[in-house]
Computed example of a mutant assay.
Amino acid sequence: MYKPRRDDRRLAHRRFPAPARGRTFRIPAVGADVVLVGYFSAKQKDFETVMASAATTLAAHGAQVVAQIVQRRGVSDGGARKMGLPYSSRTLLTYGKVREVALRCEETDAAAVVFTTPLTGRQRRTLTAMLGRPATSISDVLTAG
């Protein structure tokens, strides 16, 4: 007998409302609070400079960086062994780091989350749904400005 398949209730298979496609994120208003997130490998030693530069760029575009979070990959022995494996193609970050970003967004009442690395459309939609606020990359902010 054919039995219809039930809707899968797992987060990975849920359909989230997609933001308008083709639109880039614009900082909602002058002085909008944003959380800046950086994703760096252990080989990149100047990540603090990149984060400071991104914060300065966002400030020039009218945003106020209220928190900075860094995900470093391959720093520990266990992380170095897993460098060839992706963290999560859906979120770019580990799930613990996504929870940390979400908590920081709630604490600071941030309007958006800006990543220093480019995000795919799927990552952007997934992170926006998980964090409850727009997630975008700094390159999208610069092209929209």
Rank of each mutant, 00 (worst) to 15 (best):
A12Y: 00
H13L: 14
H13R: 09
R15W: 02
A20E: 13
V30M: 10
D33G: 15
V35W: 00
Y39L: 07
S41H: 14
S41D: 15
Q44T: 08
D46I: 07
F47A: 12
V50E: 13
V50K: 12
S53H: 03
S53V: 07
A54F: 06
A59F: 04
A59S: 15
A63M: 10
A63L: 08
V65Y: 00
Q68M: 09
I69V: 10
V70E: 08
Q71W: 03
R72K: 14
G74I: 03
V75N: 08
V75W: 07
S76L: 09
D77F: 05
A80S: 13
A80W: 06
G84R: 10
Y87W: 08
S88V: 04
S89T: 05
R90N: 08
R90Q: 07
G96F: 05
E100N: 13
C105S: 11
C105Y: 01
T108G: 07
D109Y: 01
A112V: 06
T116P: 03
P118M: 13
G121T: 08
Q123L: 12
R124P: 04
T128A: 11
A129H: 11
L131A: 03
L131Y: 01
G132Y: 04
R133L: 15
S137T: 04
I138A: 06
V141A: 07
V141C: 10
L142Y: 00
A144Y: 00
A144G: 04
